[in-house]
Amino acid sequence: MGQFDHPNIIRLEGVVTRCKPVMIITEFMENGSLDTFLKKHDGQFTVIQLVGMLRGIASGMKYLSDMSYVHRDLAARNILVNSNLVCKVSDFGLSRVLEDDPEAAYTTRGGKIPIRWTSPEAIAYRKFTSASDVWSYGIVMWEVMSYGERPYWEMSNQDVIKAIDEGYRLPAPMDCPVVLHQLMLDCWEKGRSDRPKFVQIVNTLDKLIRNPGSLKQLANNSVWEDPFTPEFSIGTVEDWLDAIKMGQYKEHFSSAGYVTLDSVMHINSSDLGNMGVTLVGHQKKILTSIQSLQTQGTHVHV
């Protein structure tokens, strides 16, 4: 098998032994897949570190695009991370070589596609281009800035397709700079010709890294909103935690004595830490939601 020569592309070689299948040898990436790595370190990186990861992924995708490759399965689960936080594009099982024409497309008639990461035209017409990889890159940006949150949460694939077709786009993750969410939205333009090229994405991220002050303005929406979940139409602590995707902490709240919505209204970060909610990102998400509960009390049945 071939080997890509770029610092943000995973290197691999194929080995064939007598009477045995092909074995693939890859370089060792100490931190494993990006999505799992981010979930384990929720809230522990600076914005500049996250942008550096995104820049590395974009650089690798620019290289593939320049070589007329379309990846077709770009997602945080297919990015590997080494001990220096260098991110490398991997898993080329669905990748294909396009013609030299930059507008060329790879068309497939069947097979499963990762709906949540796939552009509308690729879902509808099975046409994959570098522009459809750019759409997927926008989803990867969202995954990185949300520390591995599942795109579109618990929505079904059909609901995702319908929502995208009606113009819905993922809101900015908590504490996400405006400029980064805008870049995501640019990647999610309906018309593929309206999306930025990977070279433009790399240049944009380079400018942000050189001018970190541009990352200080955060997007207004600090709570991740599921468009198919009624706004805080809940009656119990368990319902509330499920609604904000923090259901894994139900027992933590119950054991600490927080069994009614009224009792959680004045919880602070120290309280969360004492009950075992130690990830900074999860603390921020819960505390932000508590603020919303306080201001939107008319929607809560206490």
Results as ranks from 00 to 15, higher is better:
residue 2 G to F: 12
residue 3 Q to P: 07
residue 3 Q to R: 15
residue 4 F to P: 11
residue 4 F to K: 09
residue 7 P to G: 12
residue 8 N to V: 09
residue 9 I to G: 04
residue 10 I to P: 07
residue 13 E to Q: 14
residue 15 V to C: 13
residue 22 V to N: 09
residue 25 I to N: 12
residue 27 E to P: 07
residue 28 F to G: 07
residue 32 G to C: 09
residue 33 S to H: 09
residue 38 L to M: 08
residue 40 K to T: 06
residue 41 H to P: 04
residue 43 G to K: 07
residue 51 V to D: 03
residue 53 M to R: 06
residue 58 A to M: 04
residue 62 K to E: 13
residue 62 K to V: 04
residue 65 S to K: 02
residue 67 M to V: 01
residue 69 Y to H: 04
residue 69 Y to D: 05
residue 70 V to N: 02
residue 72 R to K: 03
residue 74 L to T: 03
residue 75 A to S: 11
residue 75 A to C: 03
residue 84 N to K: 14
residue 88 K to C: 08
residue 90 S to K: 01
residue 95 S to W: 00
residue 96 R to K: 13
residue 97 V to F: 09
residue 98 L to V: 01
residue 99 E to Q: 10
residue 101 D to W: 05
residue 101 D to Y: 03
residue 102 P to I: 00
residue 103 E to C: 10
residue 105 A to K: 11
residue 108 T to F: 01
residue 109 R to I: 00
residue 111 G to N: 03
residue 112 K to R: 12
residue 112 K to Y: 02
residue 114 P to F: 06
residue 115 I to D: 02
residue 115 I to L: 06
residue 118 T to D: 03
residue 119 S to D: 07
residue 120 P to L: 11
residue 123 I to C: 08
residue 123 I to M: 09
residue 125 Y to E: 08
residue 129 T to F: 00
residue 131 A to M: 05
residue 135 W to V: 00
residue 136 S to Y: 00
residue 137 Y to W: 00
residue 137 Y to G: 02
residue 138 G to A: 02
residue 138 G to K: 06
residue 140 V to E: 00
residue 140 V to K: 02
residue 144 V to D: 03
residue 147 Y to I: 05
residue 148 G to R: 09
residue 149 E to Q: 15
residue 152 Y to Q: 07
residue 153 W to K: 09
residue 154 E to D: 14
residue 154 E to H: 14
residue 155 M to T: 08
residue 156 S to Q: 10
residue 159 D to H: 12
residue 160 V to H: 11
residue 162 K to Q: 14
residue 165 D to P: 00
residue 167 G to R: 09
residue 168 Y to Q: 04
residue 172 A to L: 11
residue 174 M to A: 12
residue 176 C to Y: 08
residue 179 V to L: 14
residue 188 W to V: 04
residue 191 G to F: 09
residue 195 R to E: 05
residue 197 K to C: 07
residue 197 K to P: 01
residue 198 F to Q: 03
residue 201 I to G: 09
residue 202 V to G: 08
residue 203 N to I: 00
residue 206 D to C: 10
residue 209 I to G: 03
residue 211 N to A: 11
residue 211 N to M: 09
residue 212 P to E: 08
residue 220 N to A: 13
residue 220 N to I: 10
residue 227 P to V: 06
residue 229 T to V: 15
residue 229 T to R: 15
residue 238 E to A: 13
residue 250 K to L: 02
residue 252 H to D: 08
residue 253 F to W: 01
residue 253 F to T: 03
residue 255 S to V: 12
residue 255 S to Y: 02
residue 256 A to C: 04
residue 262 D to A: 13
residue 264 V to Q: 06
residue 265 M to I: 11
residue 275 M to E: 01
residue 275 M to Y: 04
residue 279 L to C: 11
residue 280 V to E: 13
residue 284 K to E: 06
residue 288 T to C: 11
residue 293 L to A: 10
residue 301 H to K: 14
